[in-house]
């Protein structure tokens, strides 16, 4: 996702670490972190994905004054049309793959920007979900000095119908 300014903050790292059940002190205790090899609080390996918080157009976040496709009085807040209602997994498709390359690890005080390049798209037939349409994107995260810190490659999939569980 393209993001102009993603300030990496200690409280966000703490909340993120809690959400993945990680009690490692290096994610919240500056005193402890000083004595570790990194020498500072760092972010967990998948933290950078929360750049979504700083993407003004991120479509999986309800926005003030705009319709939201989740339920309220009705099961969905928008009329069925483009998405065809079923299968696709409700608006955004599903996440098929995620890859990270760490050039260095993030720490509080970093201010990232991200640029996105679309990658390949391809199709596959599956027994569990019908026709699958995959699309790839590559996001480059740079720090306040313009240095590349993380390269992320993501593959999303739209399914013809809901995926059957194994």
């Amino acid at each position: 996702m393209a993001v102009e300014r993603f300030p990496v903050e200690a409280s966000h790292i703490l909340m993120f670490a809690r959400s993945v059940g990680d009690a490692n002190q290096i994610y919240y205790d500056a005193e402890y972190a000083r004595k570790t090899e990194p020498g500072t609080i760092i972010a967990p390996p998948t933290f950078v994905q929360s750049s979504a918080q700083f993407d003004p157009d991120y479509f999986l976040r309800p926005k003030i004054g705009q319709p939201w496709f989740g339920s309220g009085k009705e099961p969905t807040g928008i009329k069925r049309e483009s998405s065809g209602g079923g299968g696709g997994g409700g608006g955004g498709g599903l996440h098929a793959e995620q890859h990270f390359e760490y050039h260095r690890h993030l720490k509080p005080g970093d201010v990232l920007s991200a640029t996105v390049k679309p990658g390949k798209t391809w199709e596959k037939e599956s027994k569990r979900a019908g026709k699958l349409v995959f699309s790839e994107s590559v996001t480059e995260y740079r720090d306040q000095n313009g240095e590349l810190v993380i390269t992320a490659r993501s593959v999303g999939v739209r399914t013809e119908r809901p995926v059957e569980s194994k």
């Binding site: 966000h12 991120y58 999986l60 976040r61 496709f69 989740g70 409700g90 955004g92």
Partner: peptide, 15 residues
């Protein structure tokens, strides 16, 4: 909440 991915598929049983 932490990641910012509020896709209703993950929290909205009705949807």
């Amino acid at each position: 909440g932490a990641s910012g991915d509020y896709n209703p598929l993950h929290s909205d049983e009705v949807f």
